[in-house]
Amino acid sequence: MDSLQTNGSTGEGSHDFARARRIIKTDEFSSVFRLRPAQKSAHFVLYTRPNQLPHARLGVVVAKRFAPRAVTRNTIKRVTRELFRVTALPPIDCVVRLSRPVNSKDQPATTAKLKVELRQELTRLFASQKKAKFPVNPAK
């Protein structure tokens, strides 16, 4: 744990993706999925839920049926995490789920055009949450 602190990942508003900023457990994903989608785009669905933490957390779900190649799935996850790190969000749990195919096996696994389109979609989704009003949770 000390190695995380020495890397400067504990500062509020830092641009890291430490374990504390991830949704990892199945029950955490389930509790966010139970709510209605906050926003939809051409390829993604964003689910959100207020949390009791001083920062936002992210979970990413990329199904193999919508992105058959591992290269494509990893690119989607990488772009999503990158945008999450640089976007100042309120203290919410966000789950980004790929909901439609981004390419087929006939096309290249990843292209510059695909990355630009994904960034644009995800930027819009995260921007919509910066403006959203969430109930303030009293500190425990």
Rank of each mutant, 00 (worst) to 15 (best):
residue 79 V to N: 09
residue 86 V to E: 07
residue 65 R to L: 03
residue 22 R to L: 05
residue 34 R to C: 13
residue 53 L to E: 14
residue 47 Y to W: 09
residue 120 Q to T: 09
residue 109 A to W: 01
residue 122 L to A: 03
residue 10 T to D: 13
residue 128 S to V: 06
residue 38 A to I: 00
residue 36 R to C: 11
residue 118 L to R: 02
residue 10 T to W: 08
residue 124 R to V: 04
residue 65 R to H: 04
residue 121 E to H: 03
residue 66 F to I: 01
residue 52 Q to W: 05
residue 138 P to S: 08
residue 89 L to M: 13
residue 62 V to Y: 08
residue 123 T to C: 01
residue 64 K to V: 11
residue 117 E to T: 09
residue 120 Q to R: 14
residue 51 N to I: 06
residue 73 R to D: 01
residue 124 R to G: 12
residue 91 P to R: 05
residue 23 I to G: 02
residue 47 Y to T: 10
residue 103 N to F: 00
residue 121 E to G: 02
residue 127 A to N: 10
residue 53 L to W: 02
residue 126 F to C: 04
residue 85 R to E: 07
residue 90 P to C: 05
residue 29 F to V: 05
residue 36 R to F: 10
residue 18 A to C: 03
residue 97 R to K: 13
residue 10 T to L: 12
residue 130 K to D: 02
residue 64 K to P: 08
residue 102 V to Q: 07
residue 81 R to W: 11
residue 21 R to F: 08
residue 110 T to L: 00
residue 105 K to W: 05
residue 116 V to S: 04
residue 87 T to K: 07
residue 99 S to C: 07
residue 136 V to Q: 09
residue 86 V to I: 15
residue 30 S to K: 12
residue 15 H to I: 12
residue 25 K to F: 13
residue 125 L to R: 01
residue 48 T to S: 15
residue 14 S to I: 03
residue 83 L to F: 01
residue 72 T to W: 01
residue 71 V to S: 15
residue 89 L to K: 07
residue 118 L to F: 00
residue 65 R to N: 09
residue 90 P to D: 12
residue 118 L to P: 08
residue 16 D to L: 01
residue 88 A to K: 15
residue 48 T to W: 05
residue 3 S to T: 14
residue 106 D to M: 12
residue 68 P to K: 03
residue 12 E to A: 10
